[in-house]
Amino acid sequence: MALLDVSDLSVVFQRRGEPPFTAVDGVSFSVEPGQTVGLVGESGCGKSVTSLAIMGLLPRRGAVVTGSVRFEGAELLSLSARQMRDRRGRDLGMVFQDPLSSLNPVIAIGLQVTEVLERHRGMPRRQAMVEAADLLDKVGIPDPRRRLDEYPHQLSGGMRQRALIAMALACRPRLLIADEPTTALDVTIQAQILALLAELVRDTGTALIMITHDLGVVAGLCDEVNVLYGGRVVERARRHELFRRPRHPYTHGLLASIPRLDAPRGERLVPIRGSVADNIPWDHGCAFAPRCPNALGTCVEVTPQMDEEDGRLLRCHNPVQENQEVPA
């Protein structure tokens, strides 16, 4: 049985006086215990909203979540707020994008870590402090005892993210969701944090959902990758398959737009034309069609369905062929 089974998850934001906005449109994927799954897409494709919906962190009013999120067989979407609260931090952890603003600026690091331990593991403060120092040590923070008394602004960006990872993993959740955990960090720190996540996930057997716009992050970490566009999964494949042979023109475009050290000198990067549309027109053809170099006549008329072909899922009428040069 899958650890997490998301099926047909949709999130519609409704505001008075405005037309409803569909941020996530029938996303399905599953995560096996210990597996690392990537959700990849550019801003506005619904990847963060998907993760917030899984965590039950979307506002109760204004956001309509439908579909199913099953965690170890239990339906999370039907849990009460209190039941969901008991699971967050204990069964599911989450790490956010900006490590500085994700920490409470007026509370010392130690108290922020012990808060989770006291909340979910019922530890007394003194014991929790010892455990907190141990946790900080595990995520590679030097001199953890001293750091316990320090405040977030005294830590470097990488250190803060390590502390947040320590807090998210404090109660040994079986699933960790990392929402762009390295975007706010500089490149060398990014690599360290990714290595840390990979190591922790391997050692503790925690499943990881890695949310990112950066395929480079996915490349080193994920077993399976879901590429999202306009609130839907457009391609899903195992990591190596996806990088070796991207089939969806969007995936292909994402890969082509990454600078590579091994590319010939002077070769130009290939951007994806245009940007994500505000409204998602999946009901009239393919949402990516206006930006797609491969678009056919049917693409704007018939909405493509998810098709399975040799172990991958693909939502495209005219996928990229092997050795095809895609015009930019």
Binding site: M55, L57, R85, D86, R87, R88, G89, R90, G93, M94, F96, D98, S101, S102, L103, N104, P105, V106, I107, E115, V116, R119, H120, L164, M167, A168
Partner: peptide
């Protein structure tokens, strides 16, 4: 704010959210 969202993601109870994370800030 982000840190209140982060605290909620850790399952912190509403009372602690208000008195530890929102009020002091």
């Amino acid at each position: 704010s982000d840190h209140v969202l982060a605290a909620r993601a850790l399952g912190v109870r509403p009372r602690a959210i208000v008195f530890r994370h929102m009020l002091p800030n």
